[in-house]
């Protein structure tokens, strides 16, 4: 038996919960804060002890260097590779998924085989692909990496879109067919709008996969299409200010993803739960 009256006990428990929540927020947000803050520090501040929790002045010299030396262009490379490959993976993946669902293309087995391709560890195929690309002359080209990212994302896109398309009532498509649409028009005017949330959610994950890829980019690029993930690793070495560059580059790499997710949040939540209901 507690001596406190019921409403007081409730109050205590509530404040305790807030305390825990606040603590968790700090634990989770601190690394992100630290990353951002380092990118705004001077070299002296970075190595100061005790650490500088909050710099005197926010200064952008770390970023200026990245842009002046052209290192920041690697973020642009990542952006081009990720968005173009996502675009193609979504187009071909959605068409393939529609075919699997509506025409039972390849029966049950083809769909399973496709997703099994996704289970292949990238490191198991990256060196054979490197040899192939050397032979084809595709190493260190946008084209080569876009093809690779597209191919690597396709199983995921097909698998996800298959689930979303299966949820579309057949009558909607049949009605459109009777109303005068061709199959392609049905895909464009009925299937895409109906699967919109799922489509966006899948596209975001596909984009993030290509955006964050390190292995393929490391092996298959040299100097022309270096991605930001590879660029970050170049800063490990003797330079005195490498922490600043790592931090600034990482921030540049985080921002596009952050905005993508923020803008797409509505669809992400709906798209993910849509898939959860079925298949």
């Amino acid at each position: 038996m507690s001596a406190l009256p019921l409403h007081r006990r409730h109050g205590v428990r509530l404040s305790f919960r807030y305390l825990i929540a606040a603590l968790l927020v700090v634990i989770f947000c601190f690394p992100v804060y630290w990353l951002f803050i380092i990118s705004f520090k001077t070299p002296d501040e970075i190595f100061a002890f005790p650490p500088v929790w909050y710099p005197e002045s926010i200064q952008f010299s770390n970023y200026k260097v990245l842009f002046k030396d052209g290192d920041a262009a690697t973020v642009g490379n990542s952006l081009i590779l990720a968005s173009v490959s996502t675009f193609f993976a979504m187009i071909f993946g959605t068409i393939a998924a529609y075919s699997l669902v509506r025409f039972k293309t390849g029966g049950e087995n083809l769909a399973v085989w496709i997703i099994s391709q996704r289970m292949m560890p990238p490191v198991a195929i990256v060196f054979p692909i490197f040899l192939l690309y050397v032979w084809l002359g595709w190493v260190d080209s946008y084209f080569g990496l876009i093809i690779l990212y597209t191919a690597f994302s396709l199983p995921y896109v097909i698998w996800m879109m298959r689930g979303y398309i299966e949820d579309i009532p057949l009558e909607l498509e049949e009605s459109a067919l009777v109303d005068g649409c061709t199959r392609w028009e049905v895909l464009w005017k009925v299937v895409l709008p109906m699967a919109r949330s799922g489509l966006f959610a899948t596209a975001v994950f596909t984009f993030i996969f290509a955006w964050n890829d390190f292995l393929f980019a490391l092996v298959l690029t040299r100097t022309e299409v270096t991605t930001y993930t590879v660029q970050v690793t170049h800063y490990f070495g003797g330079q005195s200010n490498f922490w600043a560059k790592i931090a600034a580059m990482s921030v540049l790499g985080t921002i596009p993803v952050f905005f993508t997710v923020a803008v797409m949040q509505r669809y992400l939540v709906r798209g993910i739960s849509m898939g959860a209901v079925k298949g």
Partner: peptide, 20 residues
Amino acid sequence: ARPRDRDIAMVFQNYALYPY
């Protein structure tokens, strides 16, 4: 012939309205 070439209109049991 394909459905679209048959000159028919159809009303379905579950209405089949496009929600969007």
